[in-house]
Design a binder for these strands. Structure first.
Length: 272
DNA sequence: CTCCGATCCTGATGGC
DNA sequence: TGCCATCAGGATCGGA
């Protein structure tokens, strides 16, 4: 799925069409994504105005003029949001249609149905939002923070980084890339990183995510920017999806290891 | 508490 | 060409 840079790209592309707009219709074209969709979503949102578009980790929140009512979206593995017109041809996986007063229609497409769409009270957030770790680009996420957080942790550092309760927004692509850039093996027990490792890793994560956002995210199979301009960060990836190919730094054949059921590509010579 | 594997779903890809 | 197995950006749940 969309990781932090892709969700941030989505948020930024959606904002000009959404902010200040009244919701004129909200149509659900399936009973459930990962969880059942509440049938009263339309009744609750139609007539409301969108006052803010917030990204929290990989979550998107469309806040309304009712301070206790926001639309909570998550793109899962295969979800994307696009700006359409109501008459545009509907695809079989266009499951949520949000029509706005300016004539635009925001569509959530999600072939694998791993995404989420629901109403929340932002003053009383559900566990999936309340238990999130800090933003990786925020001031709270420092080398010292990661060092203290990982003491006595035995899980691989890659799994640690992808746990949204530890730090938000990092998924399989950017975890693999950041560890490569930091020279740290994805299999290392998180607690085995020293203070210098953590400092380096946090610096690389921040720089990597900023570059990816600037590039409009990584467009693979399913992710597209809402305005149709696909991200081009795929051209900047060093190791993700490149097992068997030469390391861009030293030429050694990149290897793959499965961690938490996910492919994890690394350079056996550059990463320790 | 922490960690790991299984699971939800459909599409793309590669081997035979 | 057709068929089948495998894998895919994520999060959650149950069990060890």
């Amino acid at each position: 799925m969309p990781e932090l840079p892709e969700v941030e790209t989505t948020r930024a592309a959606l904002a000009p069409s959404c902010l200040g707009q009244t919701i004129t219709a909200l149509e659900l074209r399936t009973d459930a994504l990962r969880a059942p969709l509440a049938p009263d979503l339309s009744r609750r949102f139609v007539g409301r105005t969108i006052t803010a578009l917030e990204r929290r980790g990989k979550h998107l929140l469309l806040h309304s003029d009712d301070p206790q009512l926001s639309l909570h979206l998550h793109l899962g593995m295969s979800g994307s949001l696009r700006i359409c017109a109501p008459g545009d041809l509907l695809g079989p996986y266009d499951f949520v249609l949000l029509s706005l007063g300016n004539g635009r229609q925001i569509r959530l497409r999600d072939p694998r149905k791993f995404g989420h769409c629901g109403a929340i009270d932002p003053t009383n957030p559900p566990p999936a939002l309340k238990n999130l770790g800090p933003e990786p680009l925020g001031d709270e996420f420092t080398g010292d923070f990661l060092f203290r957080q990982t003491r006595k942790r035995t899980a691989p550092i890659k799994n640690h980084l992808m746990n949204q309760e530890h730090v938000v927004g990092i998924g399989n692509i950017y975890a693999a890339e950041a560890l490569f850039l930091s020279g740290i093996l994805p299999t290392r027990p998180a607690g085995s990183l020293d203070a210098g490792d953590c400092e380096r890793l946090v610096a690389e994560i921040k720089a990597l995510l900023k570059r990816a956002i600037a590039a409009g995210g990584t467009t693979l199979k399913d992710f597209h920017s809402p305005d149709g301009r696909d991200g081009h960060f795929i051209f900047a990836l060093d190791v993700y999806g490149k097992a068997g190919q030469p390391c861009p730094r030293c030429g050694t054949r990149l290897e793959n290891v499965v961690l938490g059921g996910r492919a994890s590509v690394f350079c056996p010579r550059c990463q320790h």
